[in-house]
Structures are given as structure tokens and as C-alpha cells.
Simulated assay, not measured.
Amino acid sequence: MPTCDHCDAHISEQFRAVFADERGEVLACPNCSANSGIADESRRRSGSG
């Protein structure tokens, strides 16, 4: 079962496929970030944005 690497909340395989970084890590999810800012928050937390 995939989980968010930031908050450990359950995420779907589809969510991981769309929002995971090049290493397969999901650094933001609807549980720990606003839906509209997940991609931006993920980049910010990874230090690449």
C-alpha cells in the first residue's frame, strides 16, 4: 500500500503515478497539502523548486 513520504497517509497507485518524483517519492498528498498546490509543495519539499 503506497503512502505519502511526508505524512505517511495512504495514497492510491494512480496518485503516486502522477505526483511521484523521479525517485518514486510522493512528498505531498491531499492529507498534508492543499489539493491545488500538491505539485508546488512537492517541489518545495524536495528542494527543486
Score class of each variant (00 low, 15 high):
M1P: 15
M1K: 10
M1G: 14
P2R: 01
T3H: 15
T3K: 15
T3F: 15
T3W: 13
H6A: 15
H6P: 10
H6E: 14
C7E: 02
D8V: 10
D8A: 15
A9F: 11
A9T: 10
H10T: 11
H10E: 15
I11Q: 05
I11G: 05
I11L: 07
I11A: 06
I11Y: 05
I11N: 03
S12A: 04
E13A: 13
E13H: 14
E13F: 09
E13I: 07
E13K: 10
R16W: 01
R16A: 10
A17Y: 02
A17Q: 09
V18Q: 02
V18R: 08
V18G: 00
V18D: 00
F19A: 02
F19C: 02
F19I: 04
F19W: 07
A20Q: 12
A20Y: 04
A20T: 07
D21V: 11
E22D: 13
E22R: 07
E22M: 09
R23E: 15
R23P: 05
G24D: 11
E25V: 14
E25N: 14
V26K: 01
V26H: 00
V26P: 00
L27R: 04
L27H: 05
L27A: 09
C29H: 01
C29V: 03
P30V: 12
N31D: 12
N31I: 07
N31L: 04
C32W: 07
C32I: 07
C32S: 01
S33I: 07
S33P: 06
S33D: 09
A34Y: 09
A34P: 05
A34K: 12
A34Q: 13
N35F: 03
N35Q: 11
S36V: 10
G37P: 04
G37D: 13
G37I: 10
I38L: 00
I38P: 03
A39F: 02
A39V: 08
D40K: 04
D40S: 08
D40M: 08
E41F: 05
E41C: 10
E41R: 05
E41W: 06
S42M: 08
R43W: 07
R43P: 05
R43D: 11
R44Y: 13
R44T: 14
R45I: 08
R45Q: 02
R45L: 02
R45S: 04
S46R: 15
S46I: 07
G47A: 12
G47V: 11
G47L: 11
S48F: 10
G49Y: 01
G49M: 06
